[in-house]
Amino acid sequence: MSKFAKKRGKADPNISTASLPDIIFMLLFFFMVVTKMRDSELKLTIITPFASELTKLEEKSLVATIYVGRPIEKYRPIYGTKPQIQLNDKFAKVGQEEADIRYFMESFRTKVPESRRPQITTSLRVDGNVTMGIVADVKTALRKSGQLKVNYSAKRRPDATL
């Protein structure tokens, strides 16, 4: 009887937390690898349409994103409700969208090593409720700047089987 009591008294009741930092670091590294820094604040409301024939964009460093949509409420007093084109964190200037888009693509290209430049894709994140006019302008500007690989961003249709 006394033997048992002695043993119990000596045992360390604390759970060892020595491995906790390792576990947390593992999680940390996981998140650091799989996530991408939000580089620009979205100033537009964008709800991309649904589609079923989708391709995944693999390498984030080779994707330049152009946003098209209506300004969020905060910016409406300045920009109104007309659809705008957002490049990085600025709106393209009305009247010289084409030059702005070409400059945007050109400056994106310089950041990518030369051998990988043909693989650059432009992702067009366009709100479903804008008209084709502005999208056609963006497309024309991209064609003129020689950026022909384009991806229309879309969500998977919930009922699609594929």
């Binding site: 947390i24 999680l27 024939e53 989708l54 964009l57 992702s123 991209l142 003129k144």
Partner: peptide, 25 residues
């Protein structure tokens, strides 16, 4: 602390869409 910082500042957006090749201008 670091973990929470990364959780907040990052987004897991899977960019998917219809890939198109535009004709040259």
């Amino acid at each position: 602390l670091l973990l929470i910082f990364f959780l907040v500042t990052t987004t897991i957006v899977e960019d998917k869409g219809i890939t198109v090749k535009l004709p040259p201008w």
